[in-house]
Amino acid sequence: MRFPGLRLLLFGAPRSASSVHLGHRRIFILPTRLGMWFGFLLLAMLFTAMNYQNNLAYALTFLAVSAALTSALHTYANLAGITLSPGTPPPVFAGQGAGFPVRLTEQRGVPRLAVEIGAVGAEVQSLDIPPSGGTSAWPGLPTQARGILPSPELVVRTRHPLGLFQAWSKMRFSEDCLVYPRPAPEAEESGVLRPEGPGIRRKWNATGEEDLDSLREYRSGESYKRIDWKAYARGRGLVSKQFSGADRASVWLDFEALPEVGVEARLALLARMILDQEEAGTMYGLKLPGSSLAPDSGPEHMHACLAELALFQPSEQEREETT
């Protein structure tokens, strides 16, 4: 890397796993449009001073020139020395905005004001970083399709203090965002998904209503809905309710059992079903061509199922069905 800055400028930022420190090799600075106008104005002022050989005009012009150049240094210094550390972006459903968390920290002991950060081509947000502190930013991107949304190229820039110069730096982190399929509309409305509809096969139907059977110590992974919050309030710690019916009831959500409406539509239906089953607190398993997840419940299981859907690669035959 002999000319890292040049490479950064010409070929874009390479992906970096760890945090990025903004040093002189990464920061570029150019006059803004306002700065260009100011340049023209300063030239006009200089010519006026020369034309009239007026020392006061010279003095004013030079002070303005000097202030503009000094402000360029301030603009650069406002960005230099900031460290950006990526966080893991939380998964989102297609259509929602994906957020890529970044933590901006500064160690020089001066506040960094009006630092703008955003994905290239998307909306930027402006924030201040307190001296010797940090602040979090969520550069966002809109999502359309399920799958892995690669971490976007981020731009950090500032025009502080005068707006005559803009210093900027671009970077790309390796923290990608997982995009779940957009869930189908409410199950009842879709018509396909009734409790006994296609795609839901009860392996073993629950007998009678779900009765509170017993309480046992909460195990991580269990649904929050099962926690006996009243007991927790009484100071008995986290205990989860065990339902005699629900314990045994489990359903299989099967890709193959759904009507042939296209791969993405089926995945949307499955996503909706996963959400509904999780809501209802039942145990559910997921069957996709080539993989399956055993029945379980709880947020971890739900995310695992949705991730399966997000990353599902349809076979040739299934793809044809889409067309």
Binding site: Y58, F62, L63, V65, S66, A67, H74
Partner: peptide
């Protein structure tokens, strides 16, 4: 900013060719 700009302004004033 203005105080920091003064030295350069003074140098320009003295040395910029008249």
């Amino acid at each position: 900013l203005l105080v920091q700009a003064l030295p350069l302004a003074a140098v320009l004033f003295l040395l910029f060719p008249r």
